[in-house]
């Protein structure tokens, strides 16, 4: 993406919200195109060839999830979904149908830009490819499987380490409960969210300065977890 401006397609039926997004994104030198309906979004996605699509779930003509399904039939363009609170199940369906991330309205410009930066990374690749990750006091050496906090080594169980590595490699990306369970424990464990809760809790006790105010592993209520985005 370096040098070349990324193209972003905004799909929302609210003119005011489109204007707000357009202003912020142009200010960040993104090229912006807009669609006010699902049908228009599908056309624009084909004609404008955007790098990221910002898609509102509540469109007048098509269900947002349906738009995602149709897009995913031919496109791998990252999709960031916009939704309102109380649509947790819709968010999960959207993520399951191929959306890459979501934002809950109202959101701040900072949140939006952070999501876009992560979404612009190639989908198939981890966000963090280096053998080493340092964020705040936390250091992870993927080659050595070593984790230290403020220089002090931390003893993690193999499951806790696998979980932390998966989250950290995808820093900034939302990881659903199902995906974490599937990739760390295996297909059979997708419903066993309590395993995840217990391991996340233990992990936080070991790496977070204050487990009640986590800074590395952020909870996405009812959806999953997200490792803090690395700028």
């Amino acid at each position: 993406m370096s040098g070349e401006k990324a193209r972003i397609l905004i799909v929302d039926d609210e003119e005011a919200l489109r204007r707000y997004l357009r202003t912020i994104l142009r200010g960040q030198h993104y090229a912006v195109s807009e669609a006010a309906s699902g049908a228009e979004a599908l056309e624009r996605a084909a004609s404008d060839n955007p790098n990221v699509i910002i898609l509102d779930l509540g469109l007048p003509d098509l269900d947002g999830v349906e738009v995602i399904r149709r897009l995913r039939e031919w496109s791998v363009t990252p999709i960031v979904v916009l939704s309102v609170r109380d649509q947790e199940s819709d968010k999960i369906t959207a993520l399951d149908s191929g959306a890459n991330d979501y934002l809950t309205k109202p959101f701040s410009a900072g949140e939006l830009l952070a999501r876009l930066r992560v979404a612009l990374r190639p989908v198939a690749q981890p966000v963090v490819e280096a053998a080493h990750l340092a964020v705040g006091d936390l250091q992870i050496d993927f080659a050595e499987r070593r984790v230290t906090v403020a220089g002090e080594p931390v003893r993690l169980t193999p499951t806790e380490y696998d979980l932390l590595r998966l989250l950290a490699r995808n820093a900034g990306r939302v990881m659903t409960h199902q995906r974490l369970l599937r990739e760390v424990w295996g297909e059979m464990y997708e419903g066993e969210t309590h395993l995840l809760r217990v391991n996340i809790s233990n992990l936080r006790q070991k790496i977070e300065p204050d487990p009640s105010r986590p800074v590395y592993i952020i909870t996405e209520p009812a959806i999953g977890y997200r490792f803090r985005a690395i700028d």
Binding site: I200, R204, S212, R213
Partner: peptide, 9 residues
């Protein structure tokens, strides 16, 4: 099943 500390966070 939820971890209350997680929720509090």
């Amino acid at each position: 099943y939820c971890d209350l500390q997680d929720l509090i966070g």
